[in-house]
């Protein structure tokens, strides 16, 4: 694919405002989905790692469900609870937030299919934090919330960052669920599909290559930043 794409066509495609807007939309909606849903996913991961409660196994199964079901089916499910007739849709509409055919809907679809990656990574991170350290913090007078923010979260941070990167990546690459919830505005995977369907392989290829290159650059940068943080912490440890 890379060899069949000339630098000229790649350059011309990169200049197209439709392509630029699509890539930008894909990136910011995925970032938004990751950040917003992390506030729910991280505490949930902590509960899953630390607490025993009825139906825990069922909840674990539900968390992993988006990984195994067809994403078009996931899109239909999302449409059910964000459409204008649903409770969530009505609440959203009342404050001027529409989901169907809107970036907010794209973000929800991205989050739905990618959140298992964050929850599982964060849960593994929290499981790796010694309960003794949390108990020590409690016995030093810290409240449970302070223990979470000063001990559990920093010590699980490496896994959480990894989960955030994976969630962001998975969100960017989502197609099946998004095409059901919001064909327009077009995220890049939908744009590639649109160009392939309407104009053929030749027109779809440069956008694909461009999106792959940009994704690659973003993830290399994110991994690099995460590693930089780790190595600066470990050098402080020395």
């Amino acid at each position: 694919m890379f060899l069949a794409t000339s630098p000229v066509s790649l350059f011309e495609t990169a200049k197209e405002s439709e392509v630029q807007q699509s890539i930008w939309l894909t990136m910011w909606t995925s970032m938004l989905a990751t950040i917003v849903f992390a506030f729910m996913a991280i505490p949930l991961s902590y509960l899953m790692a630390r607490k025993t409660f009825p139906l825990k196994k069922l909840i674990t199964g539900i968390i992993d469900l988006p990984v195994v079901i067809p994403h078009s089916a996931a899109g239909i499910a999302i449409l059910g609870f964000v459409s204008r007739n649903s409770v969530l849709g009505k609440i959203g509409s009342s404050i001027g937030l529409d989901f169907v055919g809107k970036p907010a809907g794209i973000a929800v679809a991205m989050a739905f299919v990618s959140i298992p990656y964050l929850i599982n990574a964060a849960r593994d991170g929290f499981s790796g934090v010694s309960v003794r350290l949390e108990n020590a913090a409690l016995s030093l007078g810290a409240s449970p919330s302070r223990v979470f923010f000063t001990v559990s979260l920093p010590l699980a941070w490496r896994n959480i960052v990894s989960g955030l990167i994976l969630m962001f990546a998975r969100g960017m690459s989502e197609f099946g669920a998004i095409i059901v919830v919001a064909y327009h505005p077009m995220v890049t995977p939908v744009l590639i599909y649109e160009r392939f369907g309407s104009f053929g392989l030749k027109y779809a290829r440069p956008v694909s290559v461009l999106f792959i290159l940009i994704s690659l650059a973003v993830f290399i940068l994110l991994r690099f930043l995460a590693r930089e943080k780790d190595s600066s912490e470990s050098s402080q440890n020395r």
Binding site: A136, L138, S139, L140, G141, A142, S143, T150, L155, N237
Partner: peptide, 18 residues
């Protein structure tokens, strides 16, 4: 636990590594 006025030193020290 926070209000007991007792201080526990764990066998494995439980020093916060970060």
């Amino acid at each position: 636990i926070q209000r007991r006025s007792v201080g526990l030193v764990f066998q494995d020290h439980a020093i916060f590594p970060h």
